[in-house]
C-alpha cells in the first residue's frame, strides 16, 4: 500500500511488451464479457418462460411501475454521464474529477435506493419471489442488477478515496469505469425486457 509500489509497477510495465489496454482495464473487460453472457442467460430464460405463458403479465399479479422506474433510470444514466465527464477532466483538473465522481456515486446510489423503495411497495401489493414466475424473474433479474450496482458503486467509492489521497492511477479509474458503464448499459435492456 505504498506509492513506492506504484512507481515500481510502472517500471515493470515498461520493460515488457507495450500494453494496448492496461492490465486492470483488460481484466475488467474480460470479466464484463462474462457478465454480459450471464445477463444474456437470465434474459433468454425470462423470454422463454414469458413466451410459454399464455397471459403475460399474469392477471392476478400487480403491475410493475413503468413510469416511476423510467424516471429512476434517468438517474442512472445521469450518473454515467457524470462519470464520462470525470474521465474527461482526469488529465487536467483533479478537483473537477472529484466533484463529478462524487456526483456519479450519489446519482447511482439514489437509483439503487429508489429501486429498494419500489421493491417494498411491490411486496406490499403482493408480488413476491414465489407468487408467480413473473415475481421470481422480477426479483431475480432486478435484484442481481442491484447487486452489481452496489459492487460497482463500491469500486467508484474506492476510486474516489484514492483520488482524495492523490494516488488514483488512470487504469484504476478505468477498471471501475468499465464496470459502472456495464451496470448502466445493461439496465435499459433489462428495463425493456422486464418492465415493458
Amino acid at each position: 500500500m505504498t506509492i513506492r509500489g506504484a512507481g515500481r509497477l510502472e517500471v515493470a510495465a515498461e520493460a515488457r511488451t507495450p500494453q494496448i489496454v492496461p492490465s486492470s482495464v483488460l481484466g475488467m473487460l474480460v470479466f464484463v464479457v462474462t457478465e454480459v453472457m450471464f445477463f444474456a442467460g437470465l434474459i433468454s430464460a425470462f423470454a422463454i418462460i414469458k413466451s410459454g405463458t399464455p397471459l403475460w403479465p399474469p392477471p392476478d399479479q400487480p403491475r410493475l411501475p413503468i413510469e416511476a422506474t423510467a424516471l429512476n433510470s434517468l438517474l442512472l444514466l445521469a450518473s454515467a454521464v457524470a462519470l464520462i465527464l470525470a474521465r474527461r477532466s482526469f488529465q487536467t483538473d483533479r478537483d473537477k474529477v472529484r466533484t463529478r465522481l462524487l456526483a456519479a456515486v450519489l446519482l447511482g446510489g439514489l437509483f439503487v435506493f429508489f429501486q429498494g423503495i419500489e421493491w417494498v411497495a411491490l411486496l406490499r401489493e403482493g408480488l413476491t419471489l414465489t407468487s408467480s414466475t413473473m415475481g421470481s424473474f422480477f426479483y431475480l433479474i432486478v435484484g442481481l442488477h442491484a447487486l452489481h450496482a452496489v459492487v460497482a458503486l463500491y469500486l467508484l467509492v474506492r476510486a474516489y478515496r484514492r483520488l482524495r489521497r492523490g494516488w488514483l492511477a488512470s487504469s484504476q479509474l478505468g477498471s471501475a469505469e468499465v464496470f459502472w458503464y456495464f451496470v448502466v448499459g445493461v439496465w435499459p435492456i433489462l428495463y425493456v425486457t422486464v418492465y415493458l
Binding site: V30, V33, T34, E35, V36, M37, F38, F39, A40, G41, L42, S44, A45
Partner: peptide, 10 residues
C-alpha cells in the same frame, strides 16, 4: 468466459 454466464444464471 463466454459460456459460463448462462450456467451460473441457471
Amino acid at each position: 468466459m463466454l459460456s459460463v454466464g448462462p450456467l451460473i444464471a441457471g
